[in-house]
């Protein structure tokens, strides 16, 4: 109850500012989870492929960068969105 009273006594501008900061954190943190796992899978499998067939390392590396680029785009959308959000 005391926490609610504290919230009610806050200046609404301050509350909006604080919650905006929390929202920005949640947006970027949430957007980074999936791509983090995804890039791990992409690079891990690329390393496996390079270790099994070192002679195809060139092709694998190019494809790996492509895969990273596509996966990473989602995290970057979250990064940009976290700047766009404003109270």
């Amino acid at each position: 109850m005391s926490a609610l009273r504290l919230l009610a006594e806050q200046d609404p501008g301050e509350l909006v500012e604080g919650l905006t900061a929390v929202g920005r954190g949640i947006v970027y943190g949430g957007a980074a989870i999936g791509p983090g796992i995804g890039i791990g899978i992409v690079v891990g499998n690329a390393i496996t492929a390079m270790a099994r067939q070192p002679e195809s390392a060139g092709v694998v590396r190019t494809t790996m960068f492509l895969g990273i680029a596509f996966t990473e785009a989602l995290a970057l959308f979250g990064f940009v969105l976290s700047f766009i959000i404003s109270g």
Binding site: A69, F70, E72, A73, L76, F77, F79, V80
Partner: peptide, 13 residues
């Protein structure tokens, strides 16, 4: 969109 945002966001970060 993703082509431009990828370059922009990486450099900004």
């Amino acid at each position: 969109l993703s082509l431009s945002v990828r370059l922009f966001a990486n450099m900004l970060a």
